[in-house]
């Protein structure tokens, strides 16, 4: 199992009131899957994304990612897991402004301590893979939204992570560009990349092979999409 989530609970305490964001969520994801996590706003899907993304630790339960137990790590250990095992794609792209696409893709490689020559090589490779081979020295503000998201995907792939974790990747894009991004995801999945995508749009979720539905912090359904 690439992802093993079992009996995951997350409770937020604000003063004396406690909010249960996730309640006894369990599921597994195997290598090579393309999973969409769906749910209305406030359902707990963002909290689940934070757990899977090793941005936060659960109150109780177990989360094992690629053989490593992520449930009880320190902040710096979590940073290391995020760096090596997870490729993030955010709704708002989150690129470093006014820097070249190369610089952006090389950022996680720099934190991993990879030598400069290899960084450059990998950045070129993954930017070419997402169709931006001719935009290596463009600064991020010279690119369209779709192109920016493609840079973010290249950055997510650069460390060759266990999963590509996309949080509403098409939320800020027009539908034609959204489809382009989904095509890239499907291609990457065909090449063997494992993708977990959080979305609230049903037609975007249909691009995945499997949909997990979350509501009120509970997992309410987990099934394969009709196309697959």
């Amino acid at each position: 199992m690439l992802i093993h989530v079992s009996h995951l609970n997350k409770i937020y305490y604000v003063g004396s009131t406690e909010t249960i964001a996730l309640s006894d969520v369990s599921f597994d994801v195997s290598k090579g899957e393309f999973v969409a996590i769906m749910g209305p706003s406030g359902s707990g899907k963002s909290t689940l994304m934070h757990m899977i993304g090793a941005l936060d630790t659960p109150t109780s339960g177990t989360y094992i990612l690629d053989g490593e137990d992520v449930s009880k790590l320190t902040d710096d250990e979590l940073a290391d897991i995020r760096n090596r095992k997870i490729g993030f794609v955010f709704q708002a792209f989150n690129l470093l402004p006014r820097r070249s696409t190369m610089k952006n893709v090389m950022l996680p490689l720099m934190y991993a301590g990879i030598p400069k020559e290899e960084r450059i090589e990998r950045a070129k490779k993954y930017l070419t893979l997402v169709g931006l081979g001719d935009r290596l020295e463009h600064t991020t503000n010279q690119l369209s939204g779709g192109q920016q998201q493609r840079v973010a995907i290249a950055r997510g792939l650069a460390m060759n992570p266990a999963i590509l974790l996309a949080d509403e990747p098409t939320g800020n894009l027009a539908s034609s560009q959204a489809n382009e991004i989904m095509d890239i995801f499907k291609d990457l999945n065909k090449q063997g990349h494992t993708i977990v995508m959080i979305t609230h749009e049903p037609d975007i979720a249909q691009n995945a092979k499997r949909i997990i539905m979350i509501k009120d912090g509970k997992l309410i359904s987990d099934k394969k999409t009709s196309k697959h």
Binding site: A79, R82, N83, N94, P108, Y111, R155, M159
Partner: peptide, 11 residues
């Protein structure tokens, strides 16, 4: 936030 998400440690 982005730098931390991509693996930058506190230090």
């Amino acid at each position: 936030g982005l730098r931390k998400a991509l693996g930058a440690k506190k230090k």
